[in-house]
Amino acid sequence: MLIDFTECIGCGECVKACQKQNKLGDNPSKDDLSSHNYTVVLKQEGINYRKLCMHCQEPTCASVCPVGAFTKTALGPVIYDADKCMGCRYCMMACPFGVPRYQWDSAVPVIAKCIFCNERVAAGGETACSWVCPMGATRMGRRSDLLEIARGRVERHPDKYVNYIYGETDAGGTSILMLSSVPFDKLGFPMDLGAQPLPSLTWSVLSKIPSIVVTGGVLLGGLTWIINRRIQLDSGALVDPEDSSRPGKGGAK
């Protein structure tokens, strides 16, 4: 999905369509993402811009979730299975874009985040927000096609756009791409995430666990063996040197 902030008129139709599609109820406060708002339209520096889940190519939330409640589908959406979720909120902690929200007032809370209208997309349709957008500011398509469109716009109108396609490489690349006339950090988008997907940070440690277990087990077992044998030899309990048929054992000490 490509979102061109310069084309957005701030009508908020996408927010309403999203609430209706995902049955989030009407929430008067639309200042930020919340358990009632999978997306919001905000205005800053004279430009309207959207916030929503970026649907990372390698999602941090899917990597950190202990029960695998998040899945990246082949078409791009990062979807969430509330039945699996146990509510540890590690996804909220870990998300580099600070997207997942929680139902703090519910006794049976679930994570709230944009799921890219997965059912509609899987059926070959469009997301509610892109379908409803009167300006075509939010449009669907294959990521590679959209990247080409985005690059074309930036090249043709260098006066209009900042020379940056947000989501092309950020946090390893995202399924949502954004164009803006205002630098993205001024709109609150983190610009320091780098092109390396975050899950590699923890995987580099986790992948060492098998060798830690094996090495540690052998080390501890061996240490104990040596120490106990010396103690037994010292106390003469294991081998009586006079009585030993194998002289090597008695003379080892």
Binding site: S63, G68, C88, L206
Partner: peptide, 11 residues
């Protein structure tokens, strides 16, 4: 429900 990529799963 296994996710060996998750530190929390290992913990």
């Amino acid at each position: 429900m296994w996710n060996p990529h998750s530190v929390m799963f290992e913990v």
